[in-house]
């Protein structure tokens, strides 16, 4: 399993759903956060997190939600309510003032970002990258696109280990990594150059290997284990996208 991927392997209807349907759902939720009143958006956040809990991936989602959404909400509340000088600002302590307009901004923007983070996390946690790739293939998307998505995920760990090996090799030749500021800056090339040159050597070789395996021989490719759509999923995707477009239109015109 590629490192860093959030996927949590449990059984649920959401895990079985076609990743493309889930992507459409995410687009719909994002557009929803622009039309719902702030209180409703916060309700949506709660709903999404409850769903994650009910489907058995609460731990993974909540942990990451706490690490990403909470600092954002805290930061926006402090900056908008206390630091930015809105017209209705009342002095608080010292140089700080408090503003209801700022607070309202914070609640609104904070809720929207929290909802989008929560929905994205549910998508990522319930979708193994390889299933997403199969969905791309089944939908006839260009093979190059799926490659650009998959390849970095697979190579992060390899490159991370290689960066460590390079660091070790240069240190045993006498490179000091914890010296003065300027000497640390000067040591960047010794650490980065081998990473880049090995990547270029690999890119050359892998490009030939891919062509040798028939990569991009045709504009699309087939897949050994296709993602099966439930009977209602295709129409559901269309409905979700249509709703999303409608909501964005409403938001822009009203």
């Amino acid at each position: 399993m590629a490192s860093g991927v959030l996927y949590s392997p449990v059984e649920s209807w959401l895990h079985r759903a076609n990743p493309l349907t889930k992507l459409c759902g995410l687009v719909w939720i994002v557009s929803l956060t622009f039309v719902l009143p702030p209180a409703w958006v916060w309700g949506l956040v709660g709903l999404i997190l409850l769903m994650a809990l009910a489907l058995g991936m609460g731990r993974a989602v909540l942990q990451r939600f706490a690490a990403t959404a909470l600092p954002f909400v805290a930061s926006i509340s402090i900056v908008q309510a206390l630091f930015i000088v809105h017209p209705d600002a009342r002095p608080l302590i010292g140089p700080l003032s408090i503003s209801d307009i700022g607070l309202a901004h914070a609640v609104s923007i904070g809720g929207r970002v929290a909802a989008i983070i929560a929905a994205s996390l549910v998508l990522v946690t319930s979708t193994h990258p390889s299933v997403l790739l199969r969905a791309f293939d089944a939908a006839g998307w260009p093979p190059a696109l799926a490659f650009l998505f998959a390849s970095p995920l697979l190579m992060i760990e390899t490159f991370g280990n290689r960066a460590k090996a390079i660091r070790d090799a240069q240190a045993t030749r006498g490179l000091r990594l914890k010296g003065r500021f300027l000497s640390r800056v000067k040591s960047i090339p010794a650490l980065v150059a081998p990473l880049v040159t090995t990547a270029l050597i690999e890119a050359d070789e892998r490009a030939h290997v891919l062509a040798g395996r028939g990569f991009r021989a045709h504009a699309r490719r087939t897949t050994l284990e296709p993602v099966v759509d439930a009977p209602f999923e295709r129409p559901l995707r269309i409905v979700l996208l249509a709703l999303a477009i409608l909501q964005i239109a409403v938001r822009l015109w009203l």
Partner: peptide, 28 residues
């Protein structure tokens, strides 16, 4: 985009991510 550049882009994405780790290791 040629396959060679495609593979290069994939590697570049990883170099971006690992570059951040090198930055942390050097405490820059």
């Amino acid at each position: 985009i040629s396959t060679r550049v495609l593979v290069l882009i994939a590697a570049a994405i990883v170099i971006n991510i690992v570059g951040g780790q090198i930055n942390d290791a050097l405490r820059l």
